[in-house]
Design a protein around this nucleic acid. Structure first.
Lengths: 246, 246
DNA sequence: CGACAGGTTGAGCGATATCAAGTTACGTGG
DNA sequence: CCACGTAACTTGATATCGCTCAACCTGTCG
């Protein structure tokens, strides 16, 4: 089902060390985490967990991208989470997965056995504090998506998604998002549709329209250039700056 | 702007004592909370906080109902939270409100000054633990709403909202949701529309349709009877039971 | 009694879904 | 290296659900 890699990386060299659920931990706490962690790898397209499955671990995304999706009986799908490096998967205190988790690119996760992790959360407040902070951020992101899903037009939805991916990509590379932005779409048209509450045909048409109008430049189907981020933000319909309050 | 009530209620007699952010606290911790708490009351329709405003407190809803809403520049509104008794308002570590908070009924809140509350969270893990749990629950609810907003039809949206209100009303009264359910809608048609990503006209039409089809019985505009919860759940499109995993 | 907020209903329109036909890119086996 | 198959994507024609605009109803409060 999945490849297991038993290589043992050092936490102190971990690429997500400063952003993940472990970012607040001191050396002693990291040592405890190190004892209950292990890595798992998945290929693009593989399902990590099915909704309803027993889940005996929680995890951080180390590299790659995963999605959370919900499905109605008749097959209608809605993505409800996009997991990037450093994002957390799973819920302490819950036995089964609430959503399908799928690797959309090759994916490496740093897993912690659930029971020891829960005990560790009680004894070392730094993990719980960071997890609360991350969960509050996710809740804000979810509410932003609710606005998008409930009230934005198809064109605005596409522009919003492109803006989010562009900005996120820029921060991952530690470059300020200014001037011309270039990135690759990590999602298929269908995955974008599932994220935006649209059909894949509408996604395709709106991308073509944004291209025709010069808001984006496409090279192939996935490689995107944003000549003017301001313009894209206007198309997204968000109020002005998009600055994240803190 | 708002009435302040300086009456001093005892935490041990508080109606939300067993569900709110303080539910895990022991007597000593409650005593600390009691020293930084105060009550505020708002009338139905009053705005509690505007998005972007400085927020010097966090709070629990004691009685009544409040909403969180986001607005696009051109006036399109999306509700992103429905706050019921015991729900938590505000975010530790953030200076300004991210959403408009409005009292839809008369509302009483138990407020804690933000700075002391944040310090208390560091010293007493029970508050932070409970807040994490509540935030994870809210995140699940938000993701459920994303599915509704992105993929459900107008009729399914209305049925879903009615089912949620019915069940929640039943649990607040501590009665198992079986047989015939009766409750009053706490929201206007417009508020329902803002919650569901619809127009108020569509809300009105779909409610009329559900009434015509015998799924609900209306007495006046707000008083609802659900003769068959199973039937309503089917109309909502959710898979079967709707049981909350834990 | 009049005014107004909340709610209902109708007619027509438009954005997005649906159904369908192609196109492009890419890997695989001959 | 080419032919084939397939997944991803694009584009067109048509259908439909929910929106918009508008009129009207109902209950409440002064």
């Amino acid at each position: 089902m999945h490849d297991m890699q038993h290589e043992h990386h050092e936490c102190v060299e971990c690429p997500i060390r400063h952003r993940a659920v472990c970012s607040r931990c001191d050396a002693a706490e990291l040592h405890k985490l190190e004892q209950i962690k292990y890595y798992r790898s998945y290929q693009a397209g593989q399902t990590v967990i099915w909704s309803g499955d027993r889940m005996d671990f929680v995890a951080s995304v180390v590299s790659g991208i995963a999605t959370l999706t919900q499905t109605l009986e008749d097959g209608r799908r809605q993505m409800v989470g996009l997991l990037l490096p450093s994002d957390f998967v799973g819920r302490p205190g819950r036995a089964t997965a609430a959503y399908d988790v799928t690797a959309t690119t090759d994916l490496v996760m740093c897993c912690f056995r659930k029971r020891p992790f829960e005990e560790l959360m009680l004894s070392t407040p730094h993990v719980a504090q960071r997890l609360l902070e991350m969960t509050l951020d996710e809740l804000d992101a979810a509410r932003e998506w609710m606005l998008l899903l409930g009230r934005k037009t198809a064109r605005e939805k596409i522009a919003s998604l492109l803006a989010i991916i562009a900005r996120r990509d820029a921060t991952l590379r530690l470059r300020a998002p200014k001037g011309q932005l270039v990135f690759d779409l990590p999602l298929t048209r269908e995955e974008m549709a599932d994220y935006l509450g649209l059909t894949l045909e509408t996604v395709s048409r709106q991308i073509s329209a944004l291209k025709r109008d010069g808001v984006i430049i496409l090279d192939g189907k996935r490689h995107v250039t944003i000549p003017d981020l301001e313009r894209l933000m206007e198309e997204a319909g968000d109020d002005s700056d998009g600055g994240v309050p803190e």
